[in-house]
Design a protein around this nucleic acid. Sequence first.
DNA 1: CCCCCCCC
Length: 649
Amino acid sequence: MASQQLATGALLRYLHGNTEEKAILQVVGIKTIDSKTDDPPTGTKRYRLMLSDGKSTFSSCMLGTQMNHLIDNHSLKENSIIRIQRVMVNTIDKRTGRVMLMIYELEVVESDSKRIGDPVALPLSDIINSGSSSNLSGKVSNYQTKKDDNEEVFLATASNRSAPATTAAPPSTTNVTHQGSTTLDDRNTPKKTTSDSTCATSKGNNAIDKERITNIDKLNPYMNKWTIKARVSSKTQIRTYENPRGPGKLFSCDFVDQSGEIRATAFNVECDKIYPLLEVGKVYYIARASLKPVNRQYNKLNNDFEMTFNYDTCIEACDAGEGDNIPQIQFNFIPISEVANRAANSVCDVIGVVKSTSDIQTIMGKTSQKEFHKRDILLVDENASITATLWAKQAEEFDGSSHPVIAFKGIKVGDYNGRTLSSVNSTLICQDPPETSRTMELRVWFDREGKTMDLPDLSKGSDVANRQAPFKTLAQIIAEGLGRGDKPDYINVKALLTIIKKDSAVYMMCPEKGCGKKVVDENNGMYRCEKCNKNYTNFEWAYMLSAEISDATGSQWINIFCHEAEALLGISAKKFGSYRMNQNESIIDDVVNKAMKHERVFKLRAKVDQFNVEERKVRFTCIHVSDVDWAPNARRLIDEIKQMEPMLL
DNA sequence: CCCCCCCC
């Protein structure tokens, strides 16, 4: 690889904060460093890299421990060519402004390579670069003469340097500039010590670095210095708990910035200290809290990590106006129709127009024997409607009389009578949220046509296609005794049609709308319906298929009625009936055989046959049939697997 | 380190 293929100047661009670039660089030195006792707590080893962009080298490049394996398995070594995927600038020394690069993600482009070019170490003036003018104070020159040990090691191993770091220009001559850097006057502004800020630590000199703000979506447990600037989008009450280790208390809150969201929790001492500092809707600088992988069972925010406030956590309220660019909330809306594909008890963000609102109702909790207040609202969007239940204060305070656009963040999916939504404590209810164009879209749509449209209601069990059903094998259905309970069971089965009773596939149905009963051919041009107790001059063909479906585990006879039979056979009952009348057997065989060619997903209702109570024979009725297409179910299956995970562990 | 969130 030729030297011009390295991203010349990239190291400096990174240090100046342009960290989006995915630069091709060369590793010219690797050093193992002792892990500090506090980070990471497991004592995992850390690697420090010296990187070259062909022209310059920079040695303070920490490798994120999740990338350690690349070195451990020898694919990343001295002279390897890499592509930086994710990098961040961190200040190592607040006093001097000395920075380092954190390499969170890289790709080895070429494992074995020769040294490229003749790079020299970046001058110190370029690497003391935190953007705060206080870094340009006299203290830096003291530092300048004092190389740290790691630096010396690298200087010794990197070949052909002509300009060691110590020959760098004095800091006062640097032209390093920073957006948003403070003025010299700012230096002397006394630190705010108002009640809306805390540095839980007594280390007063360890102030928040407001110049280097990390985006929330870039936070991870492997970085040790970061500050976020974020708005509190929600905050719980303080709750107490009791576990084997004793009693405790906690509260949690959610932070948002333009990049994402993260949940933070405070326990006990921090709970008391931090709870009064954080106000919903306000913007804060947060530094030095613990980060850990998210527990998906409880935290559904769009972030792989969650935050715990600790003794060292620093929180400072943003000055008025300073946080105006930080959004109020992060929504990940799904259309109402998509709620049909979500697992019960999962949570989601939904936006819609309030079509109607119920009165407040008081109900008695089954186990708790406590009274609860609830209010149902019918929420609609362009394609579907769903009932959302609000509880307690949210229910009491809700006024939907003006048909507002309402956004729910973190509302729970229920499966009563199809699909419902139920607000929980952490659910945010936002009226006419300004941060999404959906508000206006829905407003215009509803006022123009939505208010009079009749849309499928996910919360009506009669909309049977919306009903959710677990996937089972035919053997599981028998083994689990599905359909033998008081209420019907609904199951999806992936199976093949193996037998269709073609001779009884259609029957002569009463022409009276909604009757559906079989008529008797009086053989005089009249057809008699016993149910209506009437003779008709005509009848309609209707499907009532008796068929066997099979999968790898067994087979089952099922009944298939009009709509589903038509979907399966591909022709109308009327047409099938006419072939039957004309005894056109070859066409009928053709139609039937085609229907048995490929696997489908049969949604079945399993219920004890009412006419055979003694035998308790379960009758299976096909209520929906679809092609085997996993895509519409993928999200729900993923949700279900996620919910199972804790049980499997 | 919590993790409850209700009714037909």
